[in-house]
Amino acid sequence: MDEHPHGEDAVLVAVQSALAKQPAILPVARGLSHFGEHSLGWLVVSGLGAAVAPARRREYLAAGVGAFLAHAAAVVIKRVVRRPRPSHPAIAVNVGTPSRLSFPSAHATSTTAAAMLLARPTGLPLQALLVPPMALSRLVLGVHYPSDVLAGIVVGAVVGKSVDRVARRAGTVEGGSR
């Protein structure tokens, strides 16, 4: 293997060089990784929202369904594409992963869907607040290529929009999309 990273490997090395040694970056990135594993953090947030905000229960439950479906979609795509995770010697892998498959990032996928769907009941711009840190964390941790993360965001947006449409048609959530 060529000693000098090229393409997406070079991007990962640059991101890690710029950020990984900054105080708190790796612990925060690892925390995001554990939170997003199998979309479990988003399922907990959705369940808690449904429990504490009964008037918005269906919207919170739709967010949980969307996060779960987005994660499932990412897993199916990973098994079809079978792209291995980054492995260049210059890239530090800073967290364990449940599989060796990289494309798309399931963390970026479920986070995007959850952020889109949780924006409705919370009234917050969650896509802008949640997606960039999760996406960047996957690069800092060295477990995804940039294209894995971007594809995950696209898949998550498609799933989130689809769940939102179905929920509105079924009358389980009100109004237009945020």
Rank of each mutant, 00 (worst) to 15 (best):
P125Q: 08
L126F: 13
M134A: 04
I77S: 08
A114D: 12
R120H: 15
M134T: 05
A90C: 03
A119D: 05
R82V: 04
A113V: 02
S87G: 06
A115F: 12
R100Y: 10
I77E: 13
T111H: 10
A114T: 14
L118T: 06
G123T: 12
V93D: 04
T122L: 07
K78N: 06
P121G: 11
L124G: 13
P104T: 08
S110A: 15
S110Q: 15
R79H: 15
R82M: 13
G123F: 07
A113G: 07
F103L: 15
P98S: 06
P125A: 10
T97G: 05
R79M: 14
V93I: 14
L130F: 02
S102N: 11
R120C: 07
R79P: 00
L129V: 08
P125I: 11
S87D: 07
S110Y: 07
V131T: 02
L136T: 08
V95Q: 02
L117N: 04
P98H: 10
A128Y: 03
R83Y: 07
A114I: 12
V131N: 00
A115R: 11
A113R: 00
S137L: 04
T97Q: 14
V80H: 13
K78E: 06
V93S: 10
F103D: 11
S137Q: 01
L130D: 05
P98A: 11
V81S: 14
P89M: 00
A106K: 07
M134R: 03
V95W: 03
T97E: 14
S87A: 10
A135I: 00
T111L: 11
I91E: 00
L130K: 03
K78A: 02
L117Q: 05
L124S: 15
F103N: 09
R85H: 02
L126A: 14
P121L: 07
A115W: 08
L136Y: 11
A92D: 15
P89A: 02
R79T: 13
